[in-house]
Amino acid sequence: MLPAPARYRFAVFERALAGPEINPPKARSLYMNSDDRGTDRQRRFGALCEALRPDLIRFAFWLARDRALAEDVVQEALLRAWKSFDALTDEAKAKQWMLTIVRREHARTWERKRLETVNLDALVQAEAPVLASDDDAALAEMREALFRLDDDYREPLVLQVMMGYTTNEIAAHLGLTQGAVLTRLFRARHKLRTAMAVDGTENEA
């Protein structure tokens, strides 16, 4: 049984996501009352969550390197996002906004749980079902190589390749200079190429 504050938070979250089912959408009106505005807010937030949640979980997974922890981080991040949803003035920037919240939530979780340094091999083994690919060995190899990259290299690479961020946006997101981001991206790819190539001599130019 969850403690009372946690029950309350989950109830708020459930209501936020469930919006249209609990409160059928009403016709929009210039004279929308507070209930309508609340319903509209829930509907918009629910739609955003539905669209962004898969990528948020993937992003959190590559940050945390733990599937279960990634789910927890995203759950908490969505709760925080719901509470400050009114601060999001431009919904076109919702993805960036939520990624920032996920990143902060992950950092908070890391700090709160005081996670111990883990054995990387054990971590790879624990996440083997997520890293595996039934029909493509290269894909599984690449996932493991990415999994083993240092955080400093993995995060900007995920932001660039999966989220489509420019180097400027990555720099702003991570609080780095653009030069530092370019260096990290270069080194990340170099490390991946080295890790992936068994006979690296033919690949190094």
């Binding site: 997520v130 894909l139 690449m142 996932r143 990415l146 999966m162 790819r189 190429r193």
Partner: peptide, 26 residues
């Protein structure tokens, strides 16, 4: 070569979000 690696990398990052099989996660 790098563009080909990025294609593979993008696919690698898009992990399946199917719930892990029971017992798979330790």
């Amino acid at each position: 070569e790098l563009l080909a690696m990025d294609v593979l990398l993008a696919r690698a990052m898009r992990i399946s979000l199917r719930p892990p099989e029971s017992g798979a996660k330790t």
